[in-house]
Design a protein around this nucleic acid. Sequence first.
DNA 1: TTTCAACACGAAAACGTTTTCGGACCGGTA
DNA 2: TACCGGTCCGAAAACGTTTTCGTGTTGAAA
Lengths: 345, 345
Amino acid sequence: MKPKLTLKQIAFELDVSVSTVSKALRDSPEIGEDTRQKVKAFAKLYNYKPNNIALSLKNRKTRTIGLVLPEIVHDFFATVISGIEEVANKKGYNVIICLSNNSFDREVMNMEMLANGSTDGFILSVAKETQQKRDYHHLQEVINQGMPVVLVDRVVDEIICDKVIIDDAEGAAKAVQHLIDSGCRSIAIITTVDYVSVGKLRTNGYLNALRKNNITVNEDLILKIEDIDQSQEQIDEFLKSRNVDAVFAVNEQFAASAVKALVSKGLTVPEDVLVISFSDGELSRRFMPSLSTVNQHGAEMGARAAQLLIERLERVVDEERYQTAIINTSLIERESTLKTKKPVV
Amino acid sequence: MKPKLTLKQIAFELDVSVSTVSKALRDSPEIGEDTRQKVKAFAKLYNYKPNNIALSLKNRKTRTIGLVLPEIVHDFFATVISGIEEVANKKGYNVIICLSNNSFDREVMNMEMLANGSTDGFILSVAKETQQKRDYHHLQEVINQGMPVVLVDRVVDEIICDKVIIDDAEGAAKAVQHLIDSGCRSIAIITTVDYVSVGKLRTNGYLNALRKNNITVNEDLILKIEDIDQSQEQIDEFLKSRNVDAVFAVNEQFAASAVKALVSKGLTVPEDVLVISFSDGELSRRFMPSLSTVNQHGAEMGARAAQLLIERLERVVDEERYQTAIINTSLIERESTLKTKKPVV
DNA sequence: TTTCAACACGAAAACGTTTTCGGACCGGTA
DNA sequence: TACCGGTCCGAAAACGTTTTCGTGTTGAAA
């Protein structure tokens, strides 16, 4: 077990000073050609790499991004991570990930932990519980300390900083419009409780689309789910007693559950009822029937967030001028909204 | 924007020395009761938190775990991360995540990046390309530098270190046995190319189970897939021309594709053909029919890996004695292997 | 009064870098 | 000879901690 090579070691071996070694390696003109070569050769031979921690301390920069997410077993967030990782790595940054598990306390803890020198800035999607409490002091605090924050997807209006979102309402409207264009008039929505920002926005999009097409909103066709663990039962129950020709679900899980509920009711998707989902993931792609959905482009959101954060860290961007990047959604049409004759099996 | 409070600042404000402040905060008996109280009160008031980077440099420990994974948009790895995060956080460690995207070069780069002081040790699941190249010098290198490594899931025999795996062969055998017990005799397997260690092991489990039950292996029922992106076509093609009463797939995606292929062939699952998958994820749970599967307990694997690594970092464990933890698999029976009368729809 | 603990605190080194500043040496010019 | 300007290098400070060691003050014992 050889300990890591340091400047001091090299200096000792070559009988020069530490500063000489440092300067030689950084090609300072202060150092004579021959010693420079000697040092560089030695460093290369023994594979010297500067110690990141020491550099961080010296430069007061860690080249590390703190990422705090509500969950990770979820295609959307996974793709966001991929996007962040991609650009962060390209620019020489590391990504430190913490999971809040949708808990406010863990979110606060994680941020405090990372704020003490571990990272230069944050990318964050706030926990459900945080949205419910509306307590954002931990965000404001790190911002006050001069650490830039970029909010992703689940943003909060009260905090002024860079943000990356999709136009949830527009995406939802697009989905619902697609259902309407397919001839549906009795469209149910399966959504989340209102304090989940994106859920509320998607609900709004649903409502807007209906109004725009002069379809009267039927409150009885709106199901708001609090806990995803009991969603299947609630959806079964909900759909059993209602006659609809289409269902819009604000996430893949709800959509899959809806299909299941409809089938168990003896209906067929898409022949009898169209179903469209939100957030394109493995489930939508592989489901039978494959699910039409609104693509959130998670990787792109992550990439954009990382880019915004790094630009701010490297001050190429105007201080005090924050921007909100809106990533386009796109409608992916698959089998679940394909209105055709029932195929002969 | 207030800069972070440091010991020096506190010392200056309170007109004592830095060492006094440090000792007071750590409750050293060297410091008189009154100054101690004064310092602690001040620190609390202004919410002093020691700088992690400085601590890392001083202690030569970062309390950070480097995690290098092939991919993340994949339920299994996502649950592994959850498990690691959980115990790491509990023990006061951070987790730095890097993605190799199954590329050898990126895996090497990531490890070199993290090895220069950023982390105390590694948890790693090797990239597909690395398994193919059989080049593990980057692993040996960090180990030689005294950084412990724990391999997870995709392990390599050539490296001596702690490992966490499941008994892939046994899990696969369990799945196949379940099919046999349900009366199937003509069982196809959809697996990966052999250099993917877990794929090969699962294939072996399949073979073992058949032999144990005196079913002759039919090489024609074995499909090895290299690239998941073209898997659907290959699986369609494969199943179209073969008559089987069951399919064992080594992952969820293949299983879903298999069902799709069978259905498009006019067959029904599970009435005509049973299908069982490996790795319990969202897809298996939500699919229609829901897929029976072998649960890998990813969170548990991650938790165990983190535990092993931390134990080694904190030297509570015998040096030079490495262990391989084998996490139990469990068979989850769902609709896709439920042999019943065809329900009346 | 002297001596000696005990007590309370500060100075300094160390972790591994980078950078500023100063200095030694050498050649050339006045 | 005296001075000056380069060239090449080293000492030291700094980043924010912890810890070892030293030191000054006090009070009590001799």
